[in-house]
Each structure stands twice: as structure tokens, then as C-alpha cells.
């Protein structure tokens, strides 16, 4: 009997992250990093502290942002873990813990922050 791989857990997270990154990533970066700072299509008040605070005071946007961050992190962690192996750094328990552990930690922080934004 061959041992069953637990890869499906991280692979699903990786896949979901990949889909989000592919569908939304480009526009997200474009808006936040280029359009808003350059004022293209957005006024100077765009992404102001108050408007963001009120936007992310609602559970749905806050949770959405946290989920996006979390999935991006897992997507990154998964590929980085495997690519390090490809580049000659052997896959090990420690490496696995480092990659997926930081993604999990980051996700926890994101969820916590989302909660704080909603509650406070």
C-alpha cells in the first residue's frame, strides 16, 4: 500500500490562489499601484483612510481581502516550496513548515486584522 499524499490540501489552496491571482491580480495591482497614485480615473481622495476604513468596516469586503491575501500567500508558498526543490534545495519537513507555516501565519494575521477592522 502506497502512502497517500496530503498534497491535495495545499494543492487546493494553491489552485484557488492561482485562480484569484490570475483573474484579479493584474487589475488589483494596476489600480492600487498605478491608477490611484497617478490619479488616472481616480480622484486624489481615492483610497483615503476614511473611505477604506468604512469600506472594510463591512464584513464582506474585509473578509474578501483577507481571503485574497491568504490564498495569494498559499499560492506563493506552494510554488516557492517546489521551486526551491527544483533549484536543488531538497524538500524537507523543515522547508515545508517554513513555506506553508508562514502562509498560514500570514493568513491568520489577515483574518485577525479583518476582524479588527469590522469590530472596531
Amino acid at each position: 500500500m502506497r502512502a497517500r499524499s496530503h498534497e491535495p490540501i495545499v494543492w487546493s489552496l494553491f489552485g484557488a490562489g492561482g485562480v484569484f491571482a490570475a483573474l484579479l491580480g493584474t487589475m488589483l495591482v494596476l489600480i492600487i499601484g498605478i491608477l490611484v497614485p497617478m490619479g488616472l480615473g481616480f480622484g486624489p481622495d481615492a483610497m483615503h483612510y476614511d473611505s477604506l476604513r468604512s469600506l472594510f468596516g463591512h464584513p464582506l469586503p474585509a473578509l474578501g481581502l483577507a481571503v485574497v491575501i491568504s490564498l495569494f500567500l498559499f499560492h506563493g508558498a506552494h510554488r516557492i516550496y517546489h521551486t526551491l526543490h527544483d533549484l536543488g534545495i531538497p524538500a524537507s519537513k523543515k522547508m515545508m513548515l517554513a513555506c506553508y507555516g508562514s502562509a498560514a501565519a500570514g493568513s491568520g494575521v489577515a483574518l485577525l486584522l479583518a476582524g479588527m477592522l469590522v469590530v472596531f
Partner: peptide, 10 residues
């Protein structure tokens, strides 16, 4: 069983 293994599709 072969598919599911670490050395399978994964």
C-alpha cells in the same frame, strides 16, 4: 492508490 501517492500525480 498509485495516483494518490506522493510519487504519483503529485
Amino acid at each position: 492508490e498509485v495516483v494518490n501517492a506522493e510519487e504519483g500525480v503529485w
